[in-house]
Nucleic acid binder design. Structure first.
Lengths: 204, 204
DNA sequence: TTCTAAAATTGAGTCAATTCTGTTTTTGTG
DNA sequence: CACAAAAACAGAATTGACTCAATTTTAGAA
C-alpha cells in the first residue's frame, strides 16, 4: 500500500472537511445534511461513514484544528508571561477566547460541546476531553512558571488552582456560546473580575 | 375551559412523564423510543408532541424536578450554615452532589446537559439555564450569609465568588457524569481541594 | 500484462424523531 | 338536548442519520 491509494485518501479527507466546514457555517450543523456534504465533497454518503464514525466526528476534526491553534498561541505566553499575576492569566485566557471563533461559529461550538457530553466515549468525545485537559495543563504550566518567577506563592496548590481557573473560564465560555448576543469583551471582563479574587489570594 | 379537559390533561402529562422516566432508566435516553413511551402512557405519538416540543423536553421535565428538590434541600444550609467557611461550602455543594442521582442516571444527565447546550433557546434549554442560575444564586446567598455572620471578609466580591464556586463545581460535575466509573466521594474531595484555595483567601 | 485478494466506494434500505392532516372529543351557547 | 367552534388526538407520511450487501478500484504477484 503506497502512493495512489494514500493520496486519494488524504484528498478525500480534505474534501470532506472542507465541504463540511463550509456547510456548517452556511447552514448550521443541523442544517447541513450528510447527503449535501457528500455531494459537495464528490464522494458518496457511505464513503463519509468510512472516514468518520458519525456526523459529530466530522465536526470534531474541525474543532481539533481550532483548539490546537489556540494551544499553540498560548505557548508564547507561558514561556514569557507578563510580570504580574492578573495580567498573565488575563493574557493567556484572552488568547483562548479571542482565537475561539476563528474556524468555529458559536453554533458549531454548541454542537461540539453537546456531542462531547452526550457521547464521551466516542472518538470525538475522547478527543475533546483530551483538548480540555491540554488547556488545563497549559494554565497549570503558566502558574508553575509564575511560581518559579516568584510571582505566585510557592505553597499554593498549583494543580487545583489550574483546574479551578480552567473550569471557571470554560463554564463562562459555555454560557458565552449559548447566547448569540454575548460579546467577547464582556466575557473577558467577567472572567477577570472572578480571577481577581484568586489573584489577591495567591500573589506573593 | 374547566374540569374534565384540564383533569385529563394533567393526567396525560403525568402518565407521559412516568412512562418516560421508567423507560429512560431502563433503556437509556437514546434507547427509549417515543413510540414506546406513547404506548406505555396510553397516548399516541402525536399527543406526546402536543405536550412536549421534543424528546428532550420530556427529559427536561424530569431534570427540573430533580434540581428543584436539590434547591429545596439547600435552603436549610443557607439558613443555618456550619460556622466555618470551608465546611459551609462543602455542606451545600455536598447536598447538590448527593441528591443529583436520585431521579436521574448519569446518562440522563449527559443527555440533559447536551440538549441544554445544543438548544439553549428551547423551553428546556431556557429552563436549564434558569436552574443553573438558581443554584448560583443559592451559593451567593450562602456567601452573603457568611459575610453577615462575619465569617467571610466584607470586601469580597460575593457575586463573582458565587459564580466562580458554582462554575467550578458544575464543570467538575460534568466531568463526573461523563465518566461512568467516577465516584461521588472523589468528586467531593476534588472540589474541596479546589475550594480550599478560595477559603484561605476569603476567610476573616 | 493478467489475475486475485484486499480495500474502498456506492447508494438503496432501515430506523426513529418529528410533522402533518383528518377525525374525535370537549366546551359553551341557544 | 342540539350544535358549532375550539382543542386535542391519532397515526400515516416525511425526513435525515446511519448501515450494509453488492460492485468497483487498487496493489502486488506470477
Amino acid at each position: 500500500m503506497s502512493g495512489l491509494r494514500a493520496r486519494q485518501k488524504a484528498d478525500r479527507h480534505r474534501r470532506i472537511i472542507e465541504a463540511a466546514a463550509a456547510l456548517f457555517r452556511d447552514a448550521g450543523y443541523e442544517g447541513a445534511k450528510i447527503e449535501t456534504i457528500a455531494a459537495q465533497a464528490e464522494v458518496s454518503v457511505g464513503t463519509i461513514y468510512n472516514y468518520y464514525q458519525n456526523k459529530g466526528d466530522i465536526l470534531g476534526a474541525i474543532v481539533s484544528m481550532e483548539v490546537n491553534e489556540v494551544l499553540n498561541a498560548g505557548r508564547g505566553v507561558v514561556a514569557n508571561p507578563p510580570a504580574n499575576v492578573g495580567d498573565a492569566l488575563d493574557t493567556l485566557l484572552g488568547i483562548y477566547i479571542e482565537h475561539s471563533l476563528h474556524y468555529l461559529s458559536k453554533e458549531m461550538w454548541r454542537q461540539a460541546m453537546a456531542i462531547s457530553t452526550q457521547l464521551p466515549d466516542s472518538p470525538f468525545g475522547q478527543a475533546y476531553t483530551a483538548l480540555d485537559r491540554a488547556l488545563t495543563e497549559q494554565i497549570r504550566a503558566l502558574i508553575a512558571r509564575l511560581q518559579a518567577l516568584g510571582l505566585v506563592r510557592r505553597d499554593i496548590d498549583g494543580h487545583a488552582l489550574g483546574e479551578l481557573v480552567f473550569n471557571n473560564m470554560n463554564m463562562m465560555f459555555i454560557e458565552f456560546v449559548k447566547r448569540d448576543g454575548a460579546r467577547m469583551a464582556e466575557l473577558r471582563t467577567a472572567i477577570r473580575r472572578q480571577n481577581r479574587i484568586l489573584v489577591a489570594a495567591i500573589g506573593v
